[in-house]
Simulated assay, not measured.
Amino acid sequence: MVDPERPPSPVVRVLERLGDWGGHLATLITWLLAFTVTYDVILRGLGIPTLWAAEVSIYLMIAMAFIGIGATQGVDGHFRVTFLRDLCPPRVRVVLDVFALTLSFAFAIGFTYGAWTLVSFSWMLNFKSSTILQVPMWLLQGMLVVGGVLLCLATLRDLLMVFMHGSAFRDTAGSGEVI
């Protein structure tokens, strides 16, 4: 069982803080998105629509999704099917949790590496968006890299917690059942 009185290791605390930072940044981006859309709706209602608001709102939605991906992992908010795992004894649950988190970690590393390659390519060739704002593509694609790093760190944190606390960590970490 996870002991709530026992303080987490310093490494876990650092990983949690970084995940919290990503969550706070995603929340700020959400507020910026809401402000941008509200601003555009008001101006459209007055008959003077903006040229940039739709483009910026798309960029903010992408940033919100990728910057918040690590924070979502940190609260076990991603989709996970556990009915077979839940039927197993604790030792088998640990093995299944380590397997699933290791696969998730490998995917996150591969995704982040691919995103970094894309950003490097766009930087090297100085690609810009083909829209009115002409935003450098490396800046937009950089959100994928940041999100990938945050997802890697959150998955690593979960893996460390499973090693430290066993299957009890994943048993209590669920964000709720849907029936």
Rank of each mutant, 00 (worst) to 15 (best):
D97M: 06
G176R: 02
G45I: 04
F107M: 13
V12Q: 13
T112C: 13
S167E: 12
A173G: 08
A154C: 10
F99H: 04
G166A: 06
I48F: 09
V12T: 08
Q134E: 13
L25M: 10
S122G: 10
S122T: 12
V92F: 11
Y39K: 02
R80H: 05
I69P: 02
M61K: 03
R6Y: 05
G47H: 03
I48Y: 14
L87A: 15
I132N: 08
G114K: 13
R44Q: 04
A106C: 14
H24F: 11
M124I: 09
F66E: 01
T38F: 13
T50F: 08
Y113T: 09
P8N: 12
D76T: 08
L33P: 04
V41P: 00
R157D: 04
W52R: 13
T172I: 10
A106R: 08
T117C: 08
P136G: 09
M164Y: 13
L150W: 01
G23F: 02
A173M: 12
V14H: 09
I58L: 11
L33C: 11
T112P: 00
I58T: 10
R157C: 01
V145F: 02
G148R: 08
L118Y: 10
S129E: 07
T155I: 15
G77Q: 00
W21P: 01
D20C: 06
K128C: 06
R80V: 15
G19R: 01
L118N: 10
F99P: 01
D76W: 04
A106N: 11
F99K: 03
R91S: 15
L133N: 06
V81K: 07
S104E: 06
A54G: 13
Y39G: 05
Q134T: 11
F66A: 00
T27Y: 07
L140W: 03
W138D: 14
D171R: 10
M64L: 12
T172N: 12
F66V: 01
G22K: 00
G142Y: 03
L160W: 02
L139Y: 11
R44F: 05
G68M: 08
W116N: 01
G70S: 10
L96E: 06
A71P: 00
E55H: 11
Y113M: 11
G23R: 01
S175C: 10
K128V: 12
G147R: 10
D20T: 13
W116C: 09
N126M: 13
F66C: 04
Q134F: 07
K128R: 15
L32C: 15
G166C: 05
G19E: 05
R44S: 12
W123G: 00
V98W: 04
